[in-house]
């Protein structure tokens, strides 16, 4: 068997030789680190594996998802399992959406200096700075649309010089937009009512009693909308 090419990565300052071609996450696991927090779907959807790194000979700090980014020779890495960003506590049923609602819950957004560091930090390539600007003037639709693909990794908040928690602001905006502003979807309301009334309880109970093999079989046989 041919020898696999090896690269050197630095985890929190210590050098490790790992095979080339792995993601940052797999490379760190190869080096012996075990993920307890800071790892979820391994598919770039859950936003759990925020990572900060620098490349040898480059002054810039880069931000990415560990499960989506290839490890490169000479990477200096640190994982960010959690971001202790400010999060407003609210009861959505008691919120009256106004132009100032987002500022009221997250007043620090008016401290934005438009440096755009958040946008540069976003692994999803979102226009983070512009959705914060929209949040400032209470444009819920714009915030919801610009932040739609946010996976809540928190890297924007870590890099912000104004201590803004962009992803929490955007989540509140999307919730308000969904509840109060966006067009209601009839089928969804109907389905939610059915669930509340217990129409699907029997079927769900049946699923919960199945073993893995039975579940797999049922999954493969499931009906998919739009197919025969």
């Amino acid at each position: 068997m041919a020898e696999t090419e090896k690269i050197t990565i630095y985890a929190m300052g210590k050098a490790y030789k790992v095979p080339a071609g792995l993601t940052i996450m797999s490379a760190l696991e190869y080096a012996g680190y075990q993920y307890i927090r800071g790892c979820g779907c391994r598919s770039g959807y859950c936003g759990g594996c925020a990572t900060i790194y620098r490349r040898e000979g480059d002054y810039k700090l880069y931000t990415d998802l560990a499960c989506q980014t290839p490890a490169e020779d000479g990477m200096y890495l640190v994982q960010l399992p959690f971001v202790p960003a400010n999060k407003s506590i609210y009861d959505l049923d008691k919120i009256e959406p106004m132009e100032t609602t987002l500022v009221e819950h997250y007043p620090e957004i008016v401290k934005c200096v438009s440096c755009n560091t958040c946008t540069k930090a976003c692994p999803q390539d979102l226009d983070v700075m512009y959705f914060i600007q929209a949040a400032k003037i209470g444009d819920f639709k714009e915030v919801a649309e610009l932040s739609f693909d946010c996976i809540q990794c928190g890297l924007c908040a870590v890099r912000c010089p104004a201590d803004i928690a962009h992803y929490h602001v955007a989540q509140l905006a999307r919730r308000i937009y969904g509840k109060f502003i966006n067009e209601k979807v009839e089928q969804l309301t109907k389905r939610l009512n059915e669930i509340e009334k217990g129409v699907y309880d029997k079927e769900l109970n049946k699923l919960m009693k199945m073993n893995k093999a039975m579940l797999e079989k049922a999954y493969k046989k499931r009906k998919i909308e739009g197919t025969k």
Binding site: V110, V113, S114, M129, Y130, Q133, K136
Partner: peptide, 11 residues
Amino acid sequence: FKELSQWNCCG
């Protein structure tokens, strides 16, 4: 008035 294609608060 042709509004800027994108804009931010001036501070």
